[in-house]
Design a protein around this nucleic acid. Structure first.
Lengths: 194, 194
DNA sequence: ACCTGAACACCGTTCAAGT
DNA sequence: ACCTGAACACCGTTCAAGT
C-alpha cells in the first residue's frame, strides 16, 4: 500500500529498479504471480503502465528479477561438520519456505531452461555436501538434478496456494518433502557409497 | 490442417466435442500449450471463436479435457510377475513419452490441485506394484506421491520444448528420469523392506 | 531521464441475432 | 441446436509528446 507517491505539489522522488521489484514482490505475496500485471505494479507505484518499461525491458524481465530476489534470500549456511543428509534436507526446506510466501513464483523460477540464476547458489551448496559425503562428482551432479526434480514437483503440487476461487489448498506439510528427499538421498547412498 | 470444413454450398457437417479436442491437441502438438488460443482452435475447425463456447464452458475446460486425453492414452499393462521396480519405471517412462509430444501439457496437467483425473489411473497402477513388493499401504501412498513429485519436476524441466524463440531445449535423456526414479524406489526399499 | 496519453494487436468471454 | 457479428474488459507493448 505505497500508493500516491506523488500527491500534492511535492517533487516526485525518483523511482529505482529496486522499488519496482519491491512493489512486484509485495503484489505477488498478496495475490500470486498469476495475478501480477504490469498495470498493477504501475498502480502500486503511482505511475502508468508504459513507465514501467523505462526500468525493465518487459514483463518477462520483471518476473526474472522477481524470481532472482526470492531465491537469493535463502540462507545457505550449514554446519559442515554435521550430517550431510540433514544439511541437504535443511537447505531444501529453506528454499521451500522462501517460495511458499510467493504463490506461483516457484513454478516460474524452476521451469526456466537452465536453472534459475539464484538457484545455482543452492545447487552448489548441496553439491558441496554430497562431495563431502564421498560421492563421485558425476554422481553428485545427478543427485542434485534428482533433488531438483523432486523439489520442483513438490512445489508444483503446492503452488496454487491461491487459485482463482481464492481457495487455499491444503498446506501439504513440509515433512513430506523432507522425508521423500531423505529417501532419495538414501537410495543413492545405499547404491553408491562404500 | 482440417481447414475450411464448410466451403462451397455443401451442408456443414456437425461438429462434436471430440472434434474440438482433436483440433486443440493437434495445435498443441505443433505449437505448445502456451500458444493454444480459443481463436486458433476455432480457425482450425472453420468456425468463429464464440462458437467454441457451445461445446465447452471456457478455455479452462478445453485444457482440462485435453490433458485428460493425453494421460488416458498411456498403456498401463505390465507383467505382474516381473520385477516391481522395472514395472514402475516402465509406467513412468510411458507417461513421460505421452507428455513429450505435447509441450506444456505436462506442467498444466500435473499442477492442478488434486491429481489430474487421468493420472489417477497410473497412480493406482503404480500403487499395485508397490503393494505387490510388500510395502505397507501408507508407505506405498507416500512413495506414489514422491514419484509424482520427481516426475512432475522432471517434466517441468523439460517442458519448454518449444519456447518463444522456437528453440528446442536439449532433450534431457529419459534415462535420467529412469535412474533417479529407481534410486528413489531403492531408498524406500532399503529403509522399509524386509 | 522520466513520465503521460493515446493507440495497437491480441486475449477470453458475453450476448443478441440469425438459421 | 449451432453459429455469426459486434462488443466488452483486459492484457502487454509501442510511440510520440511532454517536462
Amino acid at each position: 500500500m505505497i500508493e500516491s507517491r506523488r500527491r500534492g505539489g511535492t517533487q516526485p522522488d525518483p523511482l529505482s529498479l529496486d522499488d519496482l521489484i519491491d512493489a512486484a514482490l509485495e503484489l505477488t505475496e498478496r495475490n500470486g504471480l498469476d495475478a501480477l500485471t504490469v498495470k498493477a505494479v504501475a498502480d502500486e507505484l503511482g505511475i502508468t503502465s508504459p513507465a514501467v518499461y523505462h526500468y525493465v525491458d518487459g514483463k518477462r524481465e520483471l518476473i526474472e528479477r522477481l524470481c532472482e530476489r526470492v531465491t537469493r534470500r535463502v540462507d545457505l549456511t550449514v554446519d559442515n561438520d554435521g550430517d550431510w543428509q540433514d544439511n541437504v534436507v535443511a537447505l531444501v526446506t529453506r528454499l521451500d519456505a522462501a517460495f511458499a510466501r510467493y504463490p506461483g513464483v516457484a513454478a516460474r523460477a524452476l521451469s526456466t531452461v537452465g536453472p534459475a540464476p539464484g538457484s545455482l547458489r543452492i545447487n552448489e551448496a548441496i553439491l558441496l555436501q554430497l562431495t563431502r559425503a564421498g560421492f563421485a562428482r558425476a554422481d553428485a551432479i545427478e543427485m542434485v538434478a534428482a533433488l531438483h526434480f523432486l523439489f520442483s514437483g513438490w512445489l508444483l503440487g503446492r503452488s496454487p496456494a491461491v487459485d482463482e476461487h481464492g481457495m487455499r489448498a491444503e498446506p501439504l506439510a513440509a515433512e513430506v518433502l523432507q522425508r521423500t528427499a531423505r529417501r532419495l538421498l538414501q537410495g543413492y547412498a545405499g547404491a553408491l557409497l562404500h
